[in-house]
Simulated scan of single mutants.
Amino acid sequence: MNIVVLIKQVPGTDNVKMDPETGVMIRSGKDTIINPLDENALAEAVRIKNSRDDVKLTAISMGPESAMKALKEAVAMGADAGVLLSGRAFAGSDTIATAKALAAAIKKLGPVDLVICGERATDGETGQTGAMIANNLDIPVQTYVSALEVKEDGVVVKRTVEGGFERVEVPFPVLVTVNKDINEPGFPTLNGKLRAKQVTIPVWGPEELGVDKSELGLGGSPTRVVKVFSPKLSRDTIMKKADGSTKPVDELIKFLTEKEAL
Rank of each mutant, 00 (worst) to 15 (best):
Y144V: 08
G154I: 02
V145H: 03
L137V: 03
R167D: 10
G164H: 12
V168A: 06
G164E: 07
D153M: 08
G164Y: 10
R159T: 10
L148I: 06
P140F: 02
K151R: 13
K158D: 09
F165R: 15
E169K: 11
Y144E: 07
E162L: 12
V145W: 00
I139N: 01
E166Y: 12
T143F: 05
L148F: 04
V145T: 04
I139S: 00
E162P: 06
E149A: 11
V156D: 03
D138P: 06
V150I: 09
P140V: 02
Q142E: 12
E162H: 12
E149N: 14
E152Q: 09
L137F: 03
V155T: 03
E162N: 13
P140S: 05
F165Q: 13
K158A: 07
V155L: 03
V145L: 05
I139F: 03
S146G: 12
T143G: 05
P140T: 03
R159F: 09
R167S: 14
V141R: 00
Q142Y: 05
Y144K: 13
I139L: 04
Q142R: 13
S146A: 13
N136Y: 10
V150D: 03
K151I: 06
K158H: 11
P140M: 03
A147N: 10
K151F: 05
G154R: 02
E152F: 02
R159V: 14
K158W: 08
Q142V: 13
P140Y: 04
G163M: 07
V157P: 00
E166T: 12
L148D: 00
V161N: 11
Q142T: 08
G154M: 01
S146C: 13
K158C: 10
T143Q: 05
P140E: 02
L137M: 06
Q142C: 11
V155Q: 00
T160G: 13
N136W: 05
V156R: 07
V145I: 10
D138R: 11
G164V: 07
T143A: 10
V161A: 12
V155F: 03
E149V: 11
E169C: 08
I139H: 01
T143R: 04
V168I: 14
I139G: 01
R167K: 15
L137H: 02
A147E: 09
L148Q: 01
E169D: 09
G163P: 04
E166F: 13
D153E: 15
E152W: 04
L137W: 01
Y144N: 14
V155G: 02
V161D: 10
V150Y: 01
E169N: 08
L148R: 02
V157A: 05
L148H: 01
E162S: 14
R159W: 08
K151Q: 10
V156F: 06
K158Q: 15
R159A: 09
S146T: 15
A147T: 07
V141Y: 02
G163S: 07
K158R: 15
E152A: 11
V141K: 01
D138C: 12
V141N: 01
V145E: 03
F165S: 14
G163V: 06
T143C: 07
G164R: 09
R167E: 15
A147C: 09
E152Y: 04
V150H: 03
V155A: 05
Y144M: 13
S146N: 15
L137Q: 00
D153A: 11
G154A: 05
Q142H: 08
I139M: 04
L148G: 01
E152I: 05
E166I: 11
